[in-house]
Design a protein around this nucleic acid. Structure first.
Lengths: 343, 343
DNA sequence: ATTTTTAAAGCAATCGATTGCTTTTATTGT
DNA sequence: ACAATAAAAGCAATCGATTGCTTTAAAAAT
């Protein structure tokens, strides 16, 4: 597309026999421009269809009213909602968002970060990819003088602002609830343990068992049952054990819980009477399965808003005091039929 | 945050006793730099943790490897998937995405467009907000020499590239299917008629009726039943008519169809025996309701890919030949239990 | 009427990278 | 050994907006 030259402040200045600096000052409503010329400049700018070139402006000013967001996938409910929450605040402040997805790949995440630092964004908000191992790309952000806020899936060791769900607390509540409903052999579908969130959810599971004096049965803990398919597969194995579980906590996701429910239904096992099921995330569909699935709501939109506000409040990471840098969003246990054995 | 000065090509040049132009050429792998100095420059760049300033680069080069996307809401399945599709292609090409949401507000949409044109993005991809009335902000994009691609919800009158679902065809197929299943009094939940997509879906509904010699019954057409709640409300009214419908085509969304299903269940009306239900969009949950809901898949990820490819193929709108500028994605009718009366 | 003060406008450097053109250095051919 | 050619490096302008400083014009004070 042939890009006909766009009008600049010089074009306006020339037409009005003024200097570009006056035009700039007028358009920015700064001082030292008479009311008369100011109006004239605005009028002419409109006539010539002038649009500011943010590249030039930001280059000169040395900063950029733009925030970068890096998430594993934007078409995942939780992340889409967090972004929606962030956007609500940043929009009010006149900031732009550049949204990148890592597609759960660390290599791609590094590239996203590079792009954003090259753009001189003023802040990067990130939830790391599933194959997270190394945080040097994040350290680099801070070295570039860019604010960094981590959320949900974070690099624990790194001293940055963090906004987290209290995964451990929520998991503990969920498992406690199941125990109180009379379930005794509760299985855990766990996620990759290199991610903090899945470690915490497991910790909550273990804590609940311990609190109630229930011994951990290692064969009831299934690794990496993240998707609906993997959840289904794990469930098949669990239910075929000589001594199968009477409940399954799909700590990885509601999709996984859905897989559990499907297999149970297929095998003629009654939920919640013979098997309790609890998922994680409060995806829309959990409300309408039958039975409806007990799950944990992460208050994702709220989380996004909190993150953005944190930036605008100019909160600074408190070196050497990691806990002071963390904001915890309290998740909420949503109890539904799939774990309600005692009516 | 105190932003310590970042290294520039001048810093590298100074350290190596070279000129900045050589550094620039080396880093861009262009000609006229000896292999030895090229390596030296790369090594030093790494040492000094040099990151290119894209603002400066893009300003000088006069363009920007960035594409802007404006959608009503990113946390809606359809849009999130389209964006995911776009991103897949743009990432391969080394382009960035700036994603904005209009929140279904025209005023906000205008602001988004302004931001993007100020950033000199090379292309804007848009699906307009629900209160669409005026397309002057879109005309302005073309005047700025920026490529414009509309998708799904478009300004019909505007000569731009468009990527659309064939809503009319899909709706006609859906209603035809219902007629073939023996439904005779098919109601329509329609969306705001200022949006092309809802006009087309209605047209498809009308065409199917006509083809089968069924007269339109005006009282079976309900306006603005977009959400689950509104769908439920409309359904309540419909089912309380002296002569109620025996099927409902929720052309607005699957959420609306969900509302239909809930009310029907609540009123003890059997689906699909007494009432057929068809939604639109193939949201994840439609597969797992009971009965599962018949719906229309829009191939949203594919749509996103098509849009992005269109840009990179440098397709140009063909002035005065609107139809040549339109790519139609064929949606797919997904038949499930909610309309299967004849087993 | 003249000096002082203030407001308005202009000048020129700057942000960092790119690029057409010129100069210097190295290489090749005779 | 010297001219011809090619390769490598340097110079300086440019992209468009901003901003500290200076100059000019207008208003106020004496």
């Amino acid at each position: 597309m042939k890009s006909q030259k766009r009008t600049t402040i010089y074009d306006i200045a020339k037409k009005l026999n003024l200097n570009a600096s006056s035009v700039s000052r007028a358009l920015n409503n700064s001082s030292n421009v008479s009311e008369a010329t100011r109006e004239l400049i605005f009028k002419t700018a409109k006539e010539l269809n002038y649009k500011q070139n943010s590249l030039a402006s930001n280059l000169r000013k040395g900063h950029n009213q733009t925030i970068g967001v890096v998430v594993p996938r934007i078409n995942q409910n939780f992340f889409a909602n967090v972004i929606a929450g962030i956007e609500e605040i940043t929009y009010q402040k006149g900031y732009n968002l550049i949204i990148c997805q890592s597609n759960e790949s660390h290599a791609r995440e590094v590239k996203c970060i590079n792009t954003l630092t090259n753009q001189h964004v003023s802040c990067i908000i990130i939830s790391v990819s599933a194959d997270f191992e190394d945080d040097s790309h994040l350290k680099n952000i801070k070295e570039q003088g860019i604010q960094l806020i981590q959320f949900d899936r974070v690099a624990d060791q790194l001293d940055t602002l963090k906004v987290l769900n209290d995964n451990e607390q929520a998991s503990m509540e969920a498992v406690t609830h199941m125990i109180e409903q009379g379930y005794q052999r509760i299985a855990l579908l766990e996620g990759p343990q290199n991610l903090n969130i899945f470690r915490q959810r497991k910790a909550g599971y273990l804590a609940a068992l311990k609190k109630h004096g229930i011994a951990l049965i290692p064969e009831l803990v299934m690794e990496n049952a993240w998707t609906k398919e993997l959840g289904a597969e794990a469930t098949r194995k669990l239910l075929n054990l000589p001594n199968p579980p009477d409940a399954i906590f799909a700590s990885t996701s509601d999709f996984s819980a859905l897989g559990v429910l499907e297999i149970a239904t297929k095998m003629g096992i009654r939920v919640p009477e013979d098997l309790g099921i609890c998922g994680y995330s409060n995806e829309a569909f959990t409300e309408i399965t039958s039975p409806a699935i007990t799950t944990i709501d992460q208050h994702s939109v709220q989380m996004g808003k909190t993150i953005a506000k944190l930036y605008f409040d100019e909160a600074q990471p408190n070196e050497g005091n990691p806990s002071a840098n963390t904001v915890n969003i309290q998740p909420e246990l949503i109890i539904r039929e799939s774990t309600l054995r005692k009516k």
